[in-house]
Write a protein that binds this DNA or RNA. Structure first.
Lengths: 152, 152
DNA sequence: CTGATATCATTTGCATACGAATGAATTTGC
DNA sequence: GCAAATTCATTCGTATGCAAATGATATCAG
């Protein structure tokens, strides 16, 4: 079948030839967990993506911010946040002005409709987190969140 | 500053108005953890992406598979795996033939160069997982992997 | 045997994501 | 005060990632 050995105990080709199992690597399991979360999210909130929601939620927290500043607050680089804000603006969920003192900056803030949208989706967002963590006990959930925060 | 209340204990606007903190939602922390892992990955393996690596690693395990089948083995839909395989093929890391009995299928397998590439990157991949999990103790690492597998 | 279904791959459209290059505006260093 | 360095936003290129539609082939039902 495969060229690779079956990794019988103590009988590998060499010490360095530890079996490579995708499932034991953090990148692979992170990608799958993300995938499941995204599926649950879009099933409940079909008209907004997680990054878009994050941008709105952060704007509600901080009031207003420059575009890049906002990106920093939700871990998005300049190129990525631009697209997100463009789409939110096109849908009237955020408003944009140029900064009065620094003409390079764009000041972004929630529109009334953006605020309404957030209010409407708030409980759904909690439900999505709940649903994503459903396979875990309460203790496990806290543990997972703590460990992820540590490596993030 | 913000319109949102500061969420003084027992003094929220209403019972349903639990404060929404991005950092307490699984999607946000998953995205950030993924981000850090990707940065570490590309710093060590700049000529291959994690999905490409996953495809090669799985091919080594299973010998060969149809394109969609391989996608299923690494959690990628048909549209996504196509692009990944196209790029691996363009670089000579995989070989492709049409299935003899079922002309719809593409049979994908590692090329000699793909096998060499995997051998060369194997230890680096372990180092990347190690580095990503570096902030955690051994016990925490095992716990995180187990919990992620549970929700993935 | 043949029409209905199902499967495999492809294509299109949209939305992240990031690196690198660019232009405009501001700040710093001397 | 002005050249150099920095910052903010934009643009381009590349690579996932998914939904939906399509075409080709295979299988199934009657």
């Amino acid at each position: 079948m495969s060229v690779e050995a079956k990794a019988a105990p103590f009988a590998g080709p060499a010490a360095a030839e530890k079996a490579y199992r995708l499932e034991e690597h953090i990148g692979f399991v992170l990608r799958k967990a993300n995938q499941r979360h995204l599926a649950l999210f879009s099933a409940r909130i079909s008209d907004l993506t997680p990054p878009q929601f994050a941008a709105l939620a952060r704007l509600e927290e901080v009031g207003e911010a420059s575009q890049n500043q906002l990106g920093g607050l939700i871990a998005m680089d300049a190129a990525t946040i631009k697209g997100v804000i463009d789409r939110l603006k096109a849908r009237g969920l955020v408003e944009i002005d140029t900064h009065k003192e620094d003409r390079r900056r764009l000041v972004v803030r929630l529109s009334a409709e953006g605020r309404d949208t957030l209010a409407r989706l708030r409980l759904l967002a909690f439900a999505i987190t709940e649903e994503t963590l459903a396979p875990l006990t309460g203790r496990e959930r806290a543990s997972l969140m703590r460990l992820l925060a540590k490596i993030g």
